[in-house]
Design a protein around this nucleic acid. Structure first.
Lengths: 193, 193
DNA sequence: TGTACATCAGTGAACGCGCGTTCACTGATGTAC
DNA sequence: TGTACATCAGTGAACGCGCGTTCACTGATGTAC
């Protein structure tokens, strides 16, 4: 599956990323519940003990998976931001991208932000900060300093809230996540100067 | 513990609410992880099988606990709403109360809204709808009809997002949850007409 | 009012399950000479 | 270039754990006559 060479060898050769990849697949297919260490090893075609060469414990693998998620989120936000016409449009585009990201991979979103979120892994903290930086940077680009913190927090809250409600099945709306995100983002932007 | 009579009798006498109460305590003390059916029975001083006289399965107990949470939330929102001076203040007060509710009992909030949320229990759905109705009713009281849906969704999203970020430890702010909620709510209200 | 008996609400032992992790191991790899 | 050997990266069996739920039971309650 994830072997680099075609020959079936005793050594996998690239197990660490393969484990992260397997974990991402399991998250997509079965949610957080399906993400056991043993399931990951089964998916990667490796013994139950193999991960311990690369991660000291299950939590550390989860932290790497979450960090991977934050890196993807940062890239998504950056792309949305730079494709926009002006600063306020860029902020709106980031909001929509945030919600779309969550809905495309709900279990990953939950792992990144939810109760099961791994703690005290510097790699993870840094990846999260980098993603947040994309939003904060955009806010700083047009918002006067005294209001920046509140505006950034409000923007983050509204898209995080909408994403969470969607991901957790609280909304019975017919509208697509992206349409809802656009309407909500638009409304909040009215109050951002 | 939860017996109605002082005498230790074979029959508990009031086990159903006692189980819900025990579950709420466990949630407060140890979070969702600590909420096993067996832990609930231990806390209630009853055998592991006793709950099955009152709930067909674990999920059904969780649904009752979550419904209890929604009833409390509805009451909290109603009180905040009716103590306010005018319609917009009432909406702001509901938002602050929502965030405070989440922060006071994070694990209950997660059970009510998160991935572990029980599905397909009518009692639970009704309790959730009733809580939402307090917000929707307030929005309807001063907002023109065309915008009501978007305004209600935006308000819910922003307080739900802030509550989630706080509860999941994403914010390193010094400010108290209530202060943050006031600032964010105030900012969003600017755009609500 | 007393009693027979159905029903209700609990007990207690046992089950199978998948989990994360331990232990001792072994095959493959790479480096020093 | 060949070889000895340390190190690396995997295996496979086994562990103890707490869980939700099953089964067969028993003590308490309430109602019909």
């Amino acid at each position: 599956m994830y072997t680099m060479s075609t020959s079936k060898s005793y050594h996998h050769g690239d197990l660490r990323p393969a484990l992260i990849q397997a974990a991402l697949e399991l998250l997509r297919e079965g949610g957080t519940e399906a993400l056991s260490l043993r399931a990951v090893t089964r998916r990667a075609g490796v013994s139950a003990m193999a991960p311990y060469r690369h991660f000291p414990e299950k939590e550390a693998l989860l932290a790497s998976v979450a960090a991977h998620g934050f890196n993807r989120l940062r890239a998504t936000l950056s792309t949305a931001d730079s494709n926009a016409a002006d600063a306020r449009e860029a902020l709106a585009a980031q909001g929509v991208a945030y919600v779309r990201f969550a809905c495309e991979d709900p279990a990953l979103f939950r792992l990144m932000f939810g109760a099961a979120q791994p703690r005290n892994y510097p790699e993870l903290g840094a990846a999260g900060d980098a993603a947040y930086g994309v939003l904060a940077g955009r806010v700083a680009s047009f918002c006067r300093e005294a209001e920046r913190a509140d505006v950034a927090l409000t923007c983050w809250s509204v898209v995080h809230g909408l994403a969470s409600l969607l991901v957790d099945g609280q909304l019975r709306q017919d509208a697509s996540p992206v349409m809802l995100a656009e309407r909500v983002t638009r409304l909040v932007l009215r109050s951002v100067r």
